[in-house]
Design a protein around this nucleic acid. Structure first.
Length: 315
DNA sequence: TCGTAGATAAACGATTGTGG
DNA sequence: CCACAATCGTTTATCTACGA
């Protein structure tokens, strides 16, 4: 019934939250995994076949000319194949993936200029601007927010020592003022306090990937060891995932074990994976097994228990 | 020459605001 | 009230410089 509700009822985020809390509704969030996206695409293809629609007709179902003509039966049918997803999340996912303007890669200078002019004349009406620039409204907004709007003050490239210190200072100040680093406009404000010298994305990335770790480790960056590799592999193995796109890297973060960011762990995994012969044609779990066998073949001379993995300590 | 860290920005998902 | 546009924060693909 869980799937039934999620696939048929259009709910607001608040309603969803309520049902998760009160009725024990189980819901999956975050990126769509490889298997999920396969399921969705299969379902759409099957629908197209069953109703013998041409591509244009299918497009009209997903993007009706009059937005009021949303085909709820169609969306329900698609949503059913990804049981833990809300119908609205499937709707957004499919429409984003199949948007006619999607996937255009890096922005050219002329596009930036066009974007800037368009915003100057039309304001932040992203739907209008989207048509002028030829990118999705979302892409236009993101590009403007992160790059174009700050092009006068913003610099790119390696951070100077003073910049790092300044940012560290700003973040500590703002935290002391009682603002969480995930709160609204936190990084916009941090960027402002940097004098617009660095954008919000730059500031956040710098902090997350580098500075926060540095501060915890008193200025020295820890080294990735074979033992870390072994722990990572063990954690991945425990998940028993069908595919590595199922993995939520945030969940592998363990404050006791690592100061490694989720992104770093993911990249480590990728290089480990690539070391396996013919990894591209192998299922996820086989790669994991293969790697574990390799590790066992070269046992480390000494394997000290780590604080995070030894359940009982001296206490 | 390969792996790694640093850095950037594109792509993304969830939530909020708003006009009909 | 509902659907969409707008907006928020977050994740990740990709490039690059560099050192062993």
């Amino acid at each position: 019934m869980n799937a039934e509700i999620l696939a048929t009822k259009w709910m607001t985020p608040q309603e969803l939250k309520r049902m998760v809390a009160k009725d024990g509704l189980i819901i999956k969030k975050g990126r769509f995994s490889a298997t999920e996206s396969f399921s969705v695409n299969d379902a759409i293809e099957e629908y197209q076949r069953a109703s013998s629609f041409a591509d244009a007709e299918l497009r009209a179902v997903i993007f009706p000319v009059n937005e009021r003509d949303k085909d709820t039966a169609f969306w329900g049918r698609i949503a059913k194949v990804v049981p833990r997803r809300s119908i609205s999340s499937v709707y957004h996912y499919v429409r984003r993936k199949r948007h006619p303007l999607k996937h255009k890669g890096a922005w050219g200078a002329w596009e930036d200029e066009l974007l800037e002019q368009s915003v100057a004349t039309h304001g932040k009406a992203w739907k209008v601007i989207s048509d002028l620039v030829g990118r999705t409204a979302e892409d236009c907004r993101d590009r403007y927010r992160n790059c174009v709007s700050q092009k006068e003050t913003r610099v790119v490239g390696t951070w100077a020592e003073e910049e790092e210190q300044l940012l560290a200072h700003i973040v500590t100040d703002m935290t002391d003022e009682g603002r969480g680093i995930d709160s609204d406009f936190f990084w916009d404000e941090a960027s402002r306090r940097m004098g617009g010298r660095r954008g919000r994305q730059q500031c956040r990335n710098k902090w997350m990937d580098c500075l926060s770790k540095k501060m915890k480790c008193a200025g020295t960056n820890p080294k990735w060891s074979p033992r870390d590799a072994s722990i990572l592999l063990c954690k991945i193995d425990l998940l028993q995932a069908k595919d590595d796109s199922e993995i939520d890297w945030k969940l592998l973060h363990d404050p006791d074990w690592n100061l490694w960011s989720p992104h770093l762990l993911q990249r480590r995994w990728l290089t480990m994976k690539k070391s396996i012969h013919k990894w591209q044609s192998m299922p996820h779990q086989s790669i994991v097994d293969q790697l574990r066998i390799q590790q066992l073949a070269i046992p480390p001379p000494f394997y000290p228990p780590t604080p995070s993995f030894s359940a009982s300590s001296k206490s």
